Simulated scan of single mutants.
Amino acid sequence: MPSTCTPITPRCPVRTALDLLGGKWRLLLLQQIALGQCRYGQFRRALPDISEKVLAQELRNLTEAGLVVRGAFGETAARGDYALTEGGRQALPVLEALLRFGLGYTTALQTAGSQ
């Protein structure tokens, strides 16, 4: 009987997306940057559970992947601000879909719990 599962190769687009966006913090960091340019200290306040080491590593990963850029953006911005690149903006529909899913899921749980 033939299998209905397709082998997941390194060239699989879903695997590529997970490599870029997967993990506990990357989408949360992208979400913060999507709200506006962020500095390191702002990330620390927005995500108090993340360690300094992990925050630095994840920002480096996002930068190396070309999803965010670090630098000065405009006259009032500091060198350490992070902003989305075009590639990072392409991840925004993923964030929106996760937001809708999370809201729907928690609403269903609350509705089920109140019955």
Rank of each mutant, 00 (worst) to 15 (best):
R26A: 10
E96W: 00
G104K: 10
A112H: 01
L99I: 03
E64R: 14
C5K: 06
Q42G: 10
P13C: 04
G41D: 08
S51M: 01
R89A: 01
L47S: 08
V94K: 02
L84T: 04
T106Y: 05
A17Q: 14
Q32P: 04
L109G: 00
R15Q: 10
S51Q: 02
L21D: 09
R100W: 06
T107C: 08
D19F: 10
L35H: 15
Q32D: 15
K24W: 02
T9W: 06
A34L: 07
D49T: 06
C5H: 02
T107L: 13
P10F: 09
P7T: 08
L67I: 05
R45F: 08
E52V: 09
E64M: 07
Q90I: 00
E86Y: 01
A72I: 12
G104D: 12
W25V: 04
R89M: 02
A65P: 05
R39W: 01
A34F: 10
L103V: 14
T9S: 13
G41M: 00
L21P: 09
P48S: 04
G104M: 05
T4A: 11
T85N: 04
V14P: 03
A78E: 15
T16C: 06
S51E: 03
E58I: 02
G22C: 08
C38V: 06
L20E: 13
L67N: 11
R89Y: 00
L109T: 02
F73T: 06
L29G: 08
C38F: 11
C5M: 07
